[in-house]
Design a protein around this nucleic acid. Structure first.
Lengths: 135, 135
DNA sequence: TAATTGTAATAGTTGAGATAGTACAAGTAT
DNA sequence: ATACTTGTACTATCTCAACTATTACAATTA
């Protein structure tokens, strides 16, 4: 897996690591039990302090993205969100609205926004749609 | 206009101010030439240092959301994004993908996401769709 | 057994965010 | 004109997250 750090970004380095792993999982480029680079190797590769990488791994473990085993390494975990539907909806809707507000002020047309959303949605490997029981 | 500050949030206070103004503009609750509270009044009301409010106003002016006139006050400005279509697309698409990745890891169904997106989109006062010239 | 791995802990630096206070120029109200 | 209000500018100080540097430890691997 290829990592890139943008030092000009205001986003913390450890967060950029997390972002990229989560993105690759969603893209299907990383699947369960895939091994991540070791803390020390990745730190050396990115010329970054190992503590920063460790912080990223710690957060990913807390979010349930990976499982870590001292001596072995860090591995992609099974997808499992224990949050309630209500909480998940609140989180995502709030973030969706933030993006829409941003788009509004950039004077993006509603239709462009829809188009970009659908195009982005296609990129990721969502589990197959449920039953489609017509309600 | 009613402002609320969440001290528990990791989002900076001045940014929360900006967020709320931009949101109200997108909702149509604030329109051109509407007057914002004065820096000192809002600071007193929110029990916050005037410098923090000033910083929010400074950023909004830079983003073109408002125009400020010493002695008069701060007013909602005309919507006008000078960014190219390419740049705007890049900004919004990147942010859309971030939300989608987040939703993926929360195991949100693709259909729920679509539904929430459309519902959120309806909340805001986008300018009427352009010609709809069928291409 | 020796090397590797993630983790923990301490100490120090840097920069953003926020507070506190003062001063100034431009607009408003009288 | 005068007094007040307004946004801005500036300096100083404080706090905290992010990052670096270094060492040490326990679990796994070879």
């Amino acid at each position: 897996m290829q990592f890139t750090i943008d030092n000009a970004s205001n986003r913390p380095v450890y967060q950029q690591i997390v972002d990229q792993v989560k993105r690759d999982v969603a893209l299907g480029r990383l699947v369960r039990d895939d091994k991540l680079p070791t803390v020390r190797r990745l730190a050396a590769q990115l010329v970054i302090n190992p503590n920063t990488i460790a912080k990223a791994y710690r957060q990913m473990e807390q979010e349930g993205i990976i499982t870590t085993k001292p001596g072995a390494g860090a591995f992609i975990a099974l997808l499992d969100s224990n949050l309630s539907e209500i909480v998940r909806a609140r989180i995502i809707c709030e973030r969706l609205e933030m993006v829409i507000v941003e788009a509004f002020h950039l004077q993006v047309q509603k239709e462009s926004l829809r188009e970009w959303f659908e195009k982005a949605l296609e990129k990721f490997k969502f589990s197959p749609e449920k039953g489609l029981k017509n309600e």
